[in-house]
Amino acid sequence: MAQMTMIQAITDGLRTELKNDENVLVFGEDVGQNGGVFRATEGLQSEFGEDRVFDTPLAESGIGGLAIGLATQGFRPVPEIQFFGFVYEVMDSISGQMARLRYRSGNTVNMPITIRSPFGGGVHTPEMHADSLEGLMAQQPGLKVVIPSNPYDAKGLIISSIRDNDPVIFLEHMKLYRSFRDEVPEEAYTVELGKANVTRDGKDVTLIAYGAMVQASMKAAEELEKDGIDAEVIDLRTIAPLDVETIVESVKKTGRAVVIQEAQRQAGIASQIVAEIQERAILYLEAPVLRVAAPDTVYAFTQAEEIWLPNHKDIVEKVNAVINY
């Protein structure tokens, strides 16, 4: 096994699938010779050639439409959107088209497309370069939305996403790209889509998070342990479809939950999870389920980033509130 950063694990996953299936195509702005502005596709064009890994003109709507056409012909397109803030340029292809083609065509057409894109805050890039827009995607039936929190999952999830026969939005948190390494197997392996991972067992409270907030939750759990509070942590891995079963099972055990998202508070995944819990486990609850989220403003400028982004202290505070309810 090799030690890899999350971005290396993603590159490795892409390489694995390019090798494994000749229908896999990787394309986007600057993904060829340049290897992507974050280097996620580094070396892939020289290894697999310009027919398999190629640069597109600067036009996201075109990138999305191209993926749809290719998918109808049996290819497995893996386009990159350079920053997820630019997804607005390709929303029709994603939400209006690829998400609905299976439904519209009476199951005669399907869209095995994986759209990869960096997103997320904490690296001092301002608005449009750091926004958490996963909620927009999760609201669209027909799409799967995958957000890895570590290198091992990232490789297994990108492989599963590419092999999946429905469109997947694969979001790569920029702060996690190079912040730590994990043991990552060299061979192909998959991590199941739609299945959450319990990253810490506990009995007093359930922390539910995804992406960069998983680390913050683990850190909060360590601090809480010092005060004798035993927190369970769930890494969702996939926010659509949501693994409601794992969430509800945990909450039934702990009786308390805090849901954490980096995105702004309004109409986010956390709200959805709170609703699912109260619909399915209200009689098990010892306290209201609370949320940790960013304020409802445009993504923060650098000096405000630290107070704006949710962190482990915010989580500890909410946990104390549900424990002392």
């Binding site: 403003t297 400028f301 000096q303 405000a304 630290e306 107070i307």
Partner: peptide, 12 residues
């Protein structure tokens, strides 16, 4: 000076 972090709430 930098903008006050609290000013993030202004002008939304």
């Amino acid at each position: 000076s930098y903008a006050e972090p609290k000013s993030i709430y202004h002008h939304v």
